[in-house]
Amino acid sequence: MDLLAVILVDGLIYGAWLFIVSVGLTLTFGVLNILNMAHGGLYAIGAYTTATAVGIYFANGGDAFPLGSYAVMVFAALLVAVVLGPLLERGLLRHFYDRDHVVIVLVTYGIFLILEDVMKLIWGVTPLFVSEPYSLLGNVEMGPLFYVTYDFLVIGVAIVAGLIVWYVLNRTRQGKVVLAVIHDREMSRTMGVNVNKVFMVSFMAGVFLAALGGALTAPMISVSPGISVNVIILAFAVVIIGGLGSIEGAAIGALFVGIARAASVHMLPAAELFIIYLVMAAVLVFRPEGLFPKTEARKI
């Protein structure tokens, strides 16, 4: 198997993972106009909740039906979304909607900091391991290399998640309402759209996607403090490359970064740590608002 193919497969796997952890961020930005720094924290909470839930599942006879652990993972992500989504959006964020963009980023940065320690208080600092779901599906042989089948499951989930988000936004009545709110908040309000509800549900969807990213990742890593920090920056880079608020952009941005990183791992390992920022800086130099920017109306 030649190097190019290896890079493509690795890049695809990594890109799929990146898409899952960043699509919620771009969705939240698209609808609520909030660049949510707490996204990384929500991802980590998804991972922790999954680790705990899957652990409980296997401790209580889950071995009899191990595939059920996948349902447990999704359920864990849902739980995080239902509990934290309304709490953060209704309880905190809505008080800052009329403030500057950057101020809201700082508010979410505050939330991020708080979540970091809340996680330590709940789950402690010892790493958690739940590798069962990861090894469950066995390996795939591709030429001389083995890939864990789970990695391809991640690609599947990325595609499904992307399609669902796209379908809901563009093909359903509720989605059209959301698009209307994105387009003109005030106009939608006067047309009788319950903007508050749209905000809350969209934010919950964003939290769910973040937590789902964490849930999928939990079996692959040791779940420990600090996993949120890197993810938030990766997700930021992806959505900025794609153009803030654009789902397609996030997909292409994730693929871009995924392949760039895979290429760097195989060809220029020294650059692995910052290749993503290089890609981001390079894209922004040529496309100052990312690949798929929001269009803005004339100001004067």
Partner: peptide, 27 residues
Amino acid sequence: LLSGYRGIFFAMLTLSLSMILYGALSK
């Protein structure tokens, strides 16, 4: 490079420049 950017783009670009240095120094 930066003077053409505003708001969140400025913030994220400055951040990425700093992270490039971080990555380079680490290696």
